[in-house]
Each structure stands twice: as structure tokens, then as C-alpha cells.
């Protein structure tokens, strides 16, 4: 899978490359409008991460350019502007998702994962990981054909963990994933413990491979 990161802030772009690059993903980086256009027209990407404020041009016009080229690449807008208009216009112009800066890398990874999954929707709407299989359409989880009865939040968390496997996820990243942009209005994210505890218990009852580890003082990790 190929990801193109269009971001003028080199430090941030490098962090994203570092975080996202796995056996599964290959990341490329374009730092301005011109090089982004070159890359887009020459190659196909599974996902493009697009910053709206770029030297040499506007990110939104890049979106229209993409449409003109009849490209099918998935696009996630990552913008510091966090303006509703940009979000609406971006989605109208064919972007698939919008993530406001600052964000947790884990959230970005989960969004990319979900975008790529959605785009492969027709062929594959079931994620299988060893004994666990997740039906994205029905939103059900089964372990060796036993249905695991999860709440919506537990289900979201499971997807979040699987989308960030082998990475340490902090409590605040999890809280932000569950409560969206407003998690940072509160200073106590202890409820995350409760959800993770329940998720862990339910998975264990059905006999999963005990992938969900607690990392002392930090958060959790889905280790596989």
C-alpha cells in the first residue's frame, strides 16, 4: 500500500512517515504543490494525506486537479485551519476524510486504515486477524465462530487497536478517539480503563490470543 504525505512542515511529515511506515505501508512525501502534482500524476496511491496550506498552491485546488486526472486515490485532509468551510468544501471536492491538526498519530493511522478498508469494501468487508474476524458491514465480532457481544465503544476501540497494531496507544489518544475533538475538555480519561477492561474481558471469555497488553504508565498495545 502506498501513502503520499503532502505536508510542508518537514518535521511533522517525517514523524508521520516514521509512524506509518510498516511492512504494510510505504510512505512518500511531497513538501510543496508542484512536487505533489508531479507525484500525483505519475503514480497511484492508496491514500493521500493532504495539508491544505501548501507553498505554491492551495490544497483544495490539488483536489480538483486529482478529479480532473480521474484518479481514484483516497484523500484525507489534514489541516491546521480546522475550518468548517474547508471541511465541507474538501469533502465536496472528493476528499474522503478530514482530520484537524493537532492529531494523534494513532488516530491518523486508524483513519488511513479505515479509508483503505472502505475502498476495498466490495472485495473484503471482513477483517480477519488470527482467530478474530470482524464483519464491518454487520459490525459484529466473532472468535472461532462465537459471537462476541461488544458495545459500540468497545467495537470502536477494537478497530482502533487493530488499526494500530504493535504500537503503544496513550490513554489520551484512546479518549480522543472515543470522544472526538472534545476529549481535551476534560482532565480525566479514566473511563478509557473501564472500556478497555470490558473489551479485554469479553475477548478473553471467547478465547482470543491475549493480544491486548497494558503498558505501565502509558496506555495499551495490541501486540501480534
Amino acid at each position: 500500500m502506498k501513502i503520499l504525505i503532502i505536508e510542508d512542515e518537514s518535521e511533522l511529515a517525517q514523524d508521520m512517515v516514521k509512524y506509518l511506515t510498516t511492512e504494510q505501508y510505504l510512505c512518500e512525501w511531497a513538501s510543496d504543490y508542484k512536487s505533489a502534482i508531479n507525484k500525483i500524476s505519475s503514480y497511484d496511491y492508496d491514500c493521500i494525506l493532504l495539508d491544505l496550506m501548501l507553498p505554491g498552491g492551495d490544497g483544495l485546488s490539488l483536489l480538483s486537479e486529482l478529479k480532473k486526472l480521474h484518479k481514484q486515490d483516497g484523500v484525507i485532509i489534514i489541516s491546521a485551519k480546522n475550518s468548517i468551510d474547508d471541511k465541507v468544501n474538501g469533502l465536496k471536492l472528493g476528499a474522503d476524510d478530514y482530520l484537524a491538526k493537532p492529531f494523534h498519530q494513532a488516530e491518523l493511522a486508524a483513519r488511513i486504515e479505515s479509508l483503505i478498508r472502505r475502498r476495498q469494501f466490495d472485495s473484503n468487508n471482513i477483517i480477519t486477524q488470527n482467530e478474530i474476524s470482524i464483519d464491518l458491514l454487520a459490525k459484529t465480532v466473532t472468535i472461532e465462530n462465537n459471537l462476541v457481544n461488544l458495545t459500540k465503544k468497545e467495537y470502536d476501540l477494537l478497530l482502533f487497536f487493530i488499526g494500530n497494531k504493535n504500537r503503544v496507544l496513550s490513554k489520551s489518544a484512546l479518549a480522543e478517539h472515543l470522544s472526538g475533538d472534545f476529549a481535551d475538555m476534560f482532565d480525566n480519561h479514566d473511563f478509557v480503563y473501564a472500556h478497555v477492561k470490558n473489551l479485554k474481558r469479553k475477548l478473553k471469555e471467547c478465547g482470543y490470543g491475549d493480544y491486548l497488553k497494558t503498558i505501565y504508565g502509558t496506555g495499551y498495545k495490541w501486540e501480534i
Binding site: E9, E11, L12, D15, M16, K18, Y19, A80, N82, K101, P102, F103, H104, Q105, A106, R167, V168, L169, S170, A173, T218, G219
Partner: peptide, 17 residues
């Protein structure tokens, strides 16, 4: 301020790893 904050956040995420 958005960009430095975003950087701090992403650096922290990387540090955890």
C-alpha cells in the same frame, strides 16, 4: 501555534513507541 503543537503531539506519540 497549531503546527508546533501538532509537532509536540506527534513527537510524543513516536516517543511512546
Amino acid at each position: 501555534l497549531q503546527t508546533p503543537i501538532a509537532l509536540l503531539k506527534s513527537k510524543l506519540d513516536l516517543l511512546f513507541q
